[in-house]
């Protein structure tokens, strides 16, 4: 037991245990022992024993506040979750899920077993795909040629007004494009979520992110999704407006909460890209 705390990565169906033999090669967190499987009734949790001293709330807070360590932890956690999900249906749990010992971990998972089984059913044979859309180019505005100053105050105001109109029209066009992209991709998916968009300070990209969505897609429909994205990219109507980026397949991180059907983004965007979502 290593006198350690127990870190949980993901939970699968108990029948998946043999497939999880593939976990043997996973490092997990560098500080811990080998990643292993913990049977809990009809479930199998993928866990790792970690030294308790390094994983107290205080120690973790310090570590996670350090960007490099946060990244190391996040990637280590993600690597295990991804490997488990590639081997079979799996429900990820958040990075900070830690127990004082195995018995406590077992009890907590057993208590939630109904939820795990429901979500396992929902994600079976499916994977999450991430789709992010960025608005490209500056909003077109009749800027006039630089160097020709407006002839009068009125001309100047007209120019400002036109520019404002141009911006609004561009914004509306981008919103319409986002809605069409989302609707198209939802049609190929079993479920969809709009996540909060990332600011340019976070993405490090000049172009603003206008859609950050996750789609839960049947394994045999994933090339349908890929084709739909390719068709949207090829559409000349969109080319000048947006850039579409995809990531995946992901473990079904964004579809693990069976109770919360609402989109994160809904309350987040004020001017709302969403009209009434049927």
């Amino acid at each position: 037991m290593n006198g350690g705390a127990v870190r949980v990565f993901a939970v699968c169906g108990g029948a998946a245990t043999p497939a999880l033999a593939a976990l043997a090669g996973l490092r997990g967190h560098a500080e811990g022992t080998a990643v292993r499987c913990l049977r809990v009734g009809a479930l199998a949790a993928v866990v790792q024993d970690v030294p308790a001293a390094q994983f107290t709330a205080d120690a973790l807070r310090t570590h996670l506040s350090d960007r490099a360590t946060l990244e190391r932890y996040a990637r280590a956690h993600h690597e295990v979750v991804a490997a488990v999900a590639a081997a079979g249906p799996a429900v990820p749990v958040p990075l900070t899920t830690l127990y004082a010992d195995e018995a406590r971990a077992r009890a907590a998972i057993a208590r939630e077993s109904a939820r795990f089984l429901t979500v396992l059913d929902r994600v079976r044979g499916r994977a999450e795909w991430g789709v992010k859309v960025f608005a490209v180019g500056p909003a077109p505005g009749p800027d006039g040629t630089p160097g020709t100053p407006p002839r009068s105050g009125r001309a100047y105001l007209d120019r400002l007004r036109d520019r404002q109109r141009g911006r609004e029209a561009h914004r509306d066009a981008v919103r319409a494009a986002v809605d069409r992209i989302d609707a198209t991709l939802r049609a190929t998916s079993a479920a969809a979520r709009r996540l909060r968009t990332h600011g340019t300070d976070l993405t490090g990209e000049a172009q603003p992110q206008v859609l950050n969505a996750a789609y839960l897609v049947d394994a045999d429909r994933c090339d349908e999704l890929t084709r739909a994205v390719a068709a949207l990219r090829a559409d000349p109507e969109f080319g000048t407006l947006v850039r579409i980026e995809t990531t995946g397949p992901w473990a079904p991180y964004s579809f693990a909460d069976e109770t919360d059907e609402t989109d994160e983004a809904e309350d987040a965007d004020r001017g709302g890209v969403d009209d009434d979502d049927a």
């Binding site: 705390a5 949980v8 993901a10 939970v11 994983f55 107290t56 709330a57 973790l60 807070r61 996670l64 996040a74 956690h77 993600h78 979750v81 429900v91 990820p92 749990v93 958040p94 990075l95 900070t96 899920t97 830690l98 127990y99 004082a100 406590r104 907590a108 998972i109 208590r111 939630e112 939820r115 795990f116 979500v119 992901w250 991180y253 964004s254 693990a256 909460d257």
Partner: peptide, 15 residues
Amino acid sequence: RVLDKGIVIAGDIKI
């Protein structure tokens, strides 16, 4: 994804 997605189960160590 790893910080706040997935099934949240009460843990022993609160951060």
